[in-house]
C-alpha cells in the first residue's frame, strides 16, 4: 500500500485547509517511507542495525499531534452535525498504519536483542547501535536470565562452577549473528563492481541501480548501512 496513493486519496476527501499543508505532508510521507525501509532492513538483516533515533522521534511527534487532532475532531463531531466522516476514517487508518510500522520496527529490534542479548552488550559496535531504552532493556534482560540460571540450577553446584561461562573450550557460548546468511537485496544506487565473497578467486559482481540479488549478507553489510542497497 503506497503512501502516495493515500496522499492523493486524502487530497480528494479532506477539506481545503488540508491541501495547504502539502509541503509538510510530503515531508511526513517521505519519513514514513524511510521508516518502512528501516523496518524491512531491520527485519531481514541478521545483525542489529543503527537505531533511527531522529526518525523515530519525529514520527512519534507526528503521531501524537495527529492523535490529538483526531480526538478533537471526534469530540466536535459528537456534539455537532456529522461532517466529513470519511476523511476522518481515512486519517485514522493511516495513523494506525504508521503506528504499526513503528511497532514492527521496534519489535523486530527487540526480538533480535533478546536473541543475542549477551553478545549485543559485549560487542562495542552493536552496543553503540542501541537506543538508550534498548540498552537498558538488554542489560536487565541478561541479568534476569542469569539470575534464572543461578536459582534454577547453578546454586546446586559447588561454588567454583557457578559462573555462566562465555566459552566452553573452543566453542563460543554466545555466538554472533549469522553474517554469512543469504539475503535478498535491491540495489538503489549504482555501486559498481563489488567483491561478493571472502574468497578472492570468486568473481566480483557489478551492482547497478535497480538490480535484485540474493547474496551473502557479510560482503554487502556496509552497503546496507550506507543506504545504497535495501534488503527485501
Amino acid at each position: 500500500m503506497g503512501m502516495e496513493e493515500n496522499g492523493t486519496q486524502e487530497a480528494d476527501v479532506l477539506p481545503e485547509d488540508w491541501a495547504q499543508e502539502d509541503d509538510i505532508s510530503t515531508e511526513i510521507s517521505q519519513e514514513i517511507r524511510k521508516l518502512k525501509r528501516a523496518m524491512l532492513n531491520e527485519k531481514f538483516s541478521p545483525e542489529i542495525l543503527p537505531f533511527e533515533t531522529s526518525l523515530v522521534h519525529e514520527l512519534k511527534e507526528v503521531i501524537e499531534v495527529q492523535d490529538a487532532l483526531i480526538d478533537e475532531e471526534e469530540l466536535a463531531r459528537s456534539s455537532g452535525p456529522s461532517r466529513n466522516s470519511l476523511g476522518l476514517h481515512l486519517r485514522k487508518i493511516e495513523i494506525g498504519r504508521v503506528k504499526y510500522l513503528l511497532r514492527a520496527y521496534l519489535r523486530s529490534r527487540l526480538l533480535k536483542i533478546e536473541h543475542r542479548a549477551k553478545r549485543t552488550l559485549h560487542d562495542e559496535l552493536y552496543r553503540s547501535r542501541l537506543s538508550t531504552d534498548e540498552f537498558k532493556y538488554a542489560e536487565n534482560f541478561v541479568k534476569l536470565m542469569e539470575a534464572h540460571f543461578q536459582s534454577s540450577f547453578l546454586d546446586q553446584l559447588p561454588e567454583k562452577l557457578r559462573s555462566v561461562d562465555d566459552r566452553d573450550g573452543d566453542v563460543d557460548m554466545s555466538p554472533g549473528p549469522a553474517l554469512n546468511r543469504f539475503v535478498f537485496c535491491h540495489v538503489k544506487k549504482n555501486v559498481g563492481t563489488t567483491a561478493i565473497s571472502d574468497d578472492p578467486t570468486d568473481q566480483a559482481l557489478y551492482l547497478g541501480a535497480g538490480d535484485v540479488y540474493c547474496l551473502r549478507y557479510k560482503p554487502v553489510r556496509d552497503l546496507v548501512e550506507s543506504g545504497s542497497i535495501d534488503l527485501l
Binding site: K60, I93, G96, R97, K99, Y100, L102, R103, A104, L106, R107, L110, D133, E134, K136, Y137
Partner: peptide, 18 residues
C-alpha cells in the same frame, strides 16, 4: 520498555487493514 517508547509492542502483530 513499552511504556518508555509509548507504544504497546505486543499489540497488532499483523498489519492493520481496516
Amino acid at each position: 520498555y513499552c511504556e518508555s517508547v509509548g507504544l504497546d509492542l505486543t499489540a497488532e502483530l499483523q498489519p492493520p487493514k481496516d
